[in-house]
């Protein structure tokens, strides 16, 4: 103590990186519950696999980098990364998908850049993009919600599916199918208007897709709690959701047959996950208040563009990764006015 000069302030508000990360983890809990309710226990198996991979990879890399292992594993930042990936992949995808995804995310998304605080790209989205490009087939086979498939998948079945790729009594194709985003896109390609697709039985008849919508609502609730706890900044969800809703609304108003309504866009795919859990990662996003808003809005634009005119059903991962690259530029031009200076 005496050797290090102790300087003011001598007091602290007792916050810590670990507490912030823990809050994020807790906020994801409602979504996890909803996920289990609609899609079965597959996600818990995936999550366990991801955490095991995380511990092994992080320990190995921290050792290789000559860094203390304990403080950097228990800062829980890795946990947020793997949770992000787990929520993105289909719950019954083969075990090696999550393992390779997490490994790639941690090595190439985090540690090669210097670990926590130094990575320019969102590690979770980097890992997910890697999976999307490497294993497109596996990643589009989403387990259908029990209401759609008519079968509630059990833990054992999930386990079998993940580790063997075989189901005990049902065929894999019966349980899995396209996500609503996929469905709309494929239908459009075949000339079916969006409104017709949305009114089909797969969408509750009320244009709200089963399961996915409720998970998004759960993420939204968790996100509000994080805002209250000051774990995340309001500019991200407001900028992201606001911009996406606005664009979707405008296009839907112009041509309702080609463009899905704003509610559909906000409640499908990983929109709420992204809005509150992914784009809010402070390390890879802009730091100025206006910059955060621009960053979030930029992602929204990219997501909408990729969803409607891109090759992939969803564009969150690519939208985020692309905007990550603009962060230094955004930061440069959005510096706030310092007290005592005129703009």
């Amino acid at each position: 103590m005496a050797t290090i000069p102790h300087t003011s302030p001598f007091t602290h508000n007792a916050s810590s990186v670990r507490k912030v990360m823990l809050q994020v983890q807790i906020a994801a809990f409602p979504a996890l519950m909803t996920h289990i309710y609609f899609f079965g226990f597959g996600i818990t198996i995936q999550w366990t696999l991801a955490v095991l991979t995380l511990i092994i990879v992080e320990t190995a890399l921290l050792k290789l980098r000559n860094r203390p292992v304990a403080p950097y594993i228990f800062d829980l930042s890795g946990l947020i990364t793997v949770t992000g990936i787990v929520f993105c992949i289909p719950p019954e995808s083969p075990w090696w998908v999550i393992v390779s995804g997490v490994t790639f995310a941690l090595i190439f998304g985090k540690h090669l850049y210097g670990g926590l605080g130094y990575n320019p790209f969102n590690p979770a989205m980097l890992g997910y993009a890697f999976l999307l490009i490497s294993f497109p087939a596996e990643l589009t086979q989403w387990t259908l919600p029990s209401e759609v498939s008519g079968h509630h998948i059990s833990f054992i079945e999930s386990f079998h599916l993940i580790f063997t790729g075989q189901s005990l009594n049902l065929s894999f194709d019966q349980l899995t199918g396209a996500t609503p985003l996929d469905e709309v896109k494929t239908a459009l390609a075949m000339g079916v208007p969006v409104t017709t697709t949305l009114n089909s039985t797969n969408f509750n008849g009320e244009q709200i897709p089963y399961g996915w919508a409720w998970i998004n609502v759960a993420f939204f609730i968790g996100g509000l709690w994080m805002l209250y706890k000051r774990a995340i900044r309001w500019q991200y969800p407001v900028g992201f959701l606001g911009s996406l809703a606005l664009i979707a609304y405008v296009f839907h108003w112009i041509d309702p047959d080609t463009y899905a309504p704003a509610s559909f866009h906000l409640l499908t795919g990983g929109i709420m996950l992204a809005a509150f859990f992914i784009i809010t990662d402070p390390v890879t996003s802009s730091t100025t208040p206006l910059g955060r808003f621009i960053y979030a809005a930029g992602i929204a634009v990219l997501v909408y563009v990729i969803r409607n005119w891109g090759a992939f059903p969803d564009g969150i991962a690519f939208g985020i990764l692309i905007m990550n690259m603009f962060v230094p530029l955004i930061d440069q031009y959005t510096q706030p006015r310092v007290v005592g200076y005129r703009r």
Partner: peptide, 17 residues
């Protein structure tokens, strides 16, 4: 004096700002 918390890397959270 209390034992000092080991400084972690900056996570750019923006609390300081």
């Amino acid at each position: 004096p209390e034992p000092m918390e080991e400084p972690m890397p900056c996570i750019r959270c923006g609390e300081c700002m």
